[in-house]
Design a protein around this nucleic acid. Sequence first.
RNA 1: GCCCCUAUCGUCUAGUGGCUAGGACGCUAGGUUCUCAACCUAGCAACACCGGUUCGACUCCGGUUGGGGGCGCCA
Length: 524
Amino acid sequence: MDQLISSISKKEDIRTRFAPSPTGFLQLGNLRTALFAYLFAKNNNGIFVLRIEDTDKERSTTEYEKAILETLKWVGLLWDEGPEVEGAYGPYRQSEKLDVYEKYLKQLLNENKAFYCFCSENELETYRQYQLSQGQSTAYSGKCRNISLSEAEKRIKEGEKAIIRFKNMVIEPVIFDDMIRGKTEFDPQLIGDFSIARGLRSPLFNFCNVIDDFDMKITHVVRGEDHVSNTPSQIMLQKALGFSSLKYAHLPMILAPDHSKLSKRHGAVPVLEYRDKGYLPEALINFLVLLGWHPEDDREIFTIKNLVKEFSLDRVQKSGAVFDQQRLDWLNGFYIRNLAIENLTKKCLPFLIEGNLIKIVEESIPLQLIPAVTEESWQEQKYEIIETKEIVDFSYLAKIISLYQQRLKKLSEIVDLTDFFFKELSSLSVELLRWKQMSNEEIKESLKKLKEILEKIKPEDWQKQNLENILMPEAEKMGDRGKLLWPLRVSLSGKEFSASPFDLADVLGKEKTIKRIKEALKIL
RNA sequence: GCCCCUAUCGUCUAGUGGCUAGGACGCUAGGUUCUCAACCUAGCAACACCGGUUCGACUCCGGUUGGGGGCGCCA
């Protein structure tokens, strides 16, 4: 009985797939497609399959494939079946399935459901232009569809070039019920005899797709709206091959701010670049899911776990969504602010290292291997400040980073924000030191006063709260606190914007603090 | 040109015949504050248009306009 139940539920298991072609890096639009396919599968306790569509030998590379896998792993969209993990319905790379495709191609050819077409590309293009000029839709003329298989094979043997087309005999409209867009109908006449292979060993997208979805027992195809018009062709092929039909869900596109296609300038950037700039995968996922999907209430912050629970395709939008960089940045900042400081520090360290501010002391670990350093070991390392050769530990760096946690929108910003802790100030100017209308003389007075007061503080009392207790009353006395606090903060940071002077002095320590005040005095 | 889809603040969206049309990002103002950020408060801001249907339309129907996708020996 139990077995029966499990076999029934197994039969009904939902299986989705993400099928990128390794002809470039994974971009935001693709990633959102993967996300929705993943969420739909997981929401239904189903299987998420990754398939690499590398039939285009010219453009596909293993580097791109690796990058795609890396991207999916980074954001946490782990596949149940596919490259590296494998599974029962592989291979999961189209380039490894050429024999399978050939078998089906031959079947179609023998059953007279496909034919060889000898038309040249030039000829085809000319005819297309003619159709366009006549206000007709562009479908194949049908010129070669009645060449017999034996004659075609003879001509090929003699060296003629031919591709394989599907012999489209369908008359009735092709109808499917899209899970997002509802009933969708196409006239097969307008599609005509579409191409399915360049040759027996060189199948094309529409064809492979149908074979693979069948082989991999895919139940639901979740993909971008740009595939809507491929759907009727694929359905006709399924029928011709005797395959069962599947469910489709076509996702709306992601648009650039000017409503055009996502371009290099806007969003069509490899997802890994977002990682390298310091976006958190949680933020990116949260951002992407809201581009076209919305829960029943007003919540906007979601972990992937929550999404798996709540996602549903019937709350997916039908129209395209504009990519909003500011919203992404806000979300990323939100997630950064909510990170535990140890965690944030670990994530920032690679940027500080990359920015040549610090390095890991242990000489045994080559720099190239740093990304491989385990999360835990970050805390045990010692770090050398490159310019001063000082050795500091994790908690010291954590303290610096904590001062800027609420100011970060991307992790990469930590370098410019905190560089003055690791380097001498390079560009301190009198103008920068000036608070409102203070005269040079007044600035000088303020700094001298600070120097005197601070020098008296014992090193063991050098703590933020103490410094504040001592300096605030002094600042108060001057009527305008800024007269004291602004020059202090600027002389320590060299920056117009920064954390509070007490924080800076605390982290810098007595010696460096006084040294920097003296240096500021020198330029006055 | 042909086919398909779509339409609520600038942006992401809630809304399914009767709502002061809600939230979030952004923006503006104020508070906090030495600065910036964060935070708090307030504000500005939308149903593309034209016809129907209906006692009543953002919601239903038709059209117009705008936007998107597709029309490969790419995927």
